[in-house]
């Protein structure tokens, strides 16, 4: 499904501020897997997803999605296979365009844009249906500009939009981090529901260890551009928060837990 081989990415090459964001990382994600990625600030989580989505070009290594080498493929070309929700609720939608226009853009992900109508009647029905499952009342606001929606509403909409065309791979980068706890919970539950129902192969970054233990079928911990710990579904199910903290301690003897894991990560 997703195969990452020996991936490396360096920022600010040959400058004083050079950082090795991804350091020879290899990873395989099987179809239907829901992998949660945790790790301290600057561990390289976002950079890893950026390499997969094409927003960043890696320096070395290979990324293969469904047997196709996409390492050098432009971002917009691979968009057909990859659904994304960003951390910033403002990033995933067009504020000046209406809800239905945004959804119509998403409904054409990976397809060429022609001179046919941008929204069809049939689509509106599909959108209304998809929105009614959110229970946010958005199904009656199809012609409202997205700029009028709250952050949580926009993020829920982004999630629906990312899955409107079934993605081969769904990438979520801390997509609940900018929301208040209650809304974050709502969006997270929606995520789990959608991923489960559609059996989507998903990679989700989170700072919240509790969420990472609660959701998903696999848990990865990143540190300094590498994958430090990798739990499959079975071992993850037996894992407690305390175990995770201890394991992290053992894996990183030079650090104490408090130094590497922020409070945000524990309590999120």
């Amino acid at each position: 499904m997703l195969r990452i081989e020996n991936l490396s990415k360096r920022f600010g090459k040959n400058t004083a501020s050079e950082v090795l964001a991804i350091d020879g990382l290899s990873l395989r994600v099987s179809p239907g897997e829901f992998a949660c990625v945790i790790g301290s600030n600057g561990a390289g989580k976002s950079t890893l997803l950026a390499c997969v989505s094409g927003a960043t070009r890696p320096d070395e290594g290979k990324i293969v999605l469904e047997g196709e080498d996409i390492t050098r493929q432009p971002e917009n070309k691979r968009a057909g296979k990859i659904g994304r929700v960003f951390q910033d609720p403002l990033s995933g939608t067009c504020a000046s365009m209406t809800i239905e226009e945004n959804m119509a853009l998403a409904n054409r992900r990976g397809k060429p844009r022609t001179l046919r109508m941008g929204i069809t009647k049939k689509e509106r029905e599909k959108f209304r249906e998809a929105l009614s499952e959110l229970n946010l009342g958005l199904e009656n606001r199809l012609r409202d500009p997205v700029g009028l929606l709250s952050g949580g509403q926009r993020q829920s909409l982004s999630l629906i939009m990312a899955t409107l065309v079934r993605p081969t791979l769904l990438l979520l980068d801390e997509h609940t981090a900018a929301l208040d706890p209650k809304t974050a919970n709502l969006v997270m539950n929606l995520t789990a529901e959608v991923v489960e129902k559609e059996k989507l192969t998903t990679v989700m970054i989170t700072h919240n260890m509790r969420l990472a233990l609660l959701h998903g079928t696999r848990l990865l911990m990143m540190h300094r551009g590498q994958i430090l710990l990798d739990f499959d579904e079975l071992s993850k199910s037996k894992l407690t928060l305390q175990d995770l903290l201890e394991k992290f301690d053992v894996a990183l003897p030079e650090n104490n837990t408090a130094g590497v894991l922020s409070d945000r990560m524990l309590l999120g």
Binding site: N76, S91, G118, I119
Partner: peptide
């Protein structure tokens, strides 16, 4: 109102989003 026109509007509004939707900005 066309697919192309909508992608044009989106390019001005949010290039990051419309790239993720598969449009070559």
């Amino acid at each position: 109102k066309t697919e192309y026109g909508q992608s044009l509007l989106a390019t001005g509004d949010n290039p990051r989003m419309i790239t993720a939707m598969g449009v070559n900005t």
